[in-house]
Write a protein that binds this DNA or RNA. Structure first.
Length: 252
DNA sequence: AATTTTTCCAACCGCGCGCTT
DNA sequence: CAAGCGCGCGGTTGGAAAAAT
């Protein structure tokens, strides 16, 4: 699995590295270190650019570098760290001695990303939208027992166009100790106002329930999930909270 | 067995940051 | 302060190998 070898317009060698080049780079770095990547190829007698040498060293030649076959523990940790850090591959890689950021990034794009998407879909019994990436049943009937869910089912297809988006509304609701309107407007400002069909936890007043539905791994994840829930469901929440100003389970 | 499609990963590219001049 | 340089990072591509048809 290598790239075709060629020379660019400056006579710099591109493409797959030969064994001889590898040996030359390894010998030079082990002997002299790599304080200046730009000058290194010249001194090492390589027709490569510094960047290419650096990449080859970090991802392939560096002592102790691990490639291929990720364990399940590694997969799980990568997924968890990606949820917390996003695409900060260099930060994520720091938690895996021997793994390069490039390798982890590749593994994510080729395997883990889809795995995560499929897992979320499988576990979200309310999700009705089909995904092209998962070969599984994607449409499920949904018959809510909770009155809130009946409302959810009805309102998800019946939100009037004139209904003001929550983030434009002057109304505020206390929800989990914070103002939904202000939280939502902050979120919208950061992420945009893309409206997606409601994904409704069994009881919107019960964060623990929402938490478990979204498979948060630890307490630190809660805020992130809570925020994304608000983004995805802000308009729906606006209607629910008008209909049910108090938590219906409060006096139960 | 031949052909097509998918997977995987090495390598490239462009951008931004920090340091030096 | 601005310009230039070197490096690191994240996104993307190329193509061999493996799997599917």
């Amino acid at each position: 699995m290598t790239r075709r070898l060629y020379y660019d317009e400056n006579g710099i060698k591109r493409g797959a590295w030969s064994k001889k080049e590898d040996e030359r780079l390894r010998a030079y770095v082990e002997r002299h270190g790599h304080s200046n990547w730009r000058q290194l190829p010249k001194h090492a007698g390589l027709s490569r650019c510094g960047k290419s040498c650096r990449l080859r060293w970090l991802n392939y030649l560096r002592p102790g570098v691990k490639r291929g076959s990720y364990t399940q523990e590694e997969d799980e940790l990568i997924i968890k760290l990606h949820e917390q850090l996003g695409n900060k591959w260099s930060l994520i890689a720091k938690r895996f001695p021997g793994r390069s950021d490039n390798g982890i990034k590749n593994h994510w794009h080729s395997y883990l990303r889809r795995k995560v998407e499929c897992t979320h879909e499988e576990k979200s019994e309310f999700k009705t939208k089909a995904s092209g990436t998962c070969k599984r049943e994607t449409t499920k009937s949904f018959e809510p027992e909770n009155p809130l869910l009946s409302f959810a089912a009805a309102s998800s297809s019946n939100i009037p166009e004139s209904s003001p988006p929550l983030w434009n509304s002057s109304a505020t609701f206390s929800f989990g100790g914070s103002s939904v309107a202000s939280a939502a407007s902050e979120i919208i400002e950061e992420f945009g106002d893309t409206w997606t069909p409601p994904f409704v936890p069994e009881n919107i007043y019960d964060l623990d329930n929402y938490y478990s539905l979204n498979f948060a791994a630890n307490e630190a994840d809660l805020d992130e999930y809570y925020s994304s829930f608000l983004v995805n469901n802000a308009e729906f929440l606006y209607q629910v909270m008008q209909e049910f100003p108090e938590d219906p389970k409060k006096d139960m």
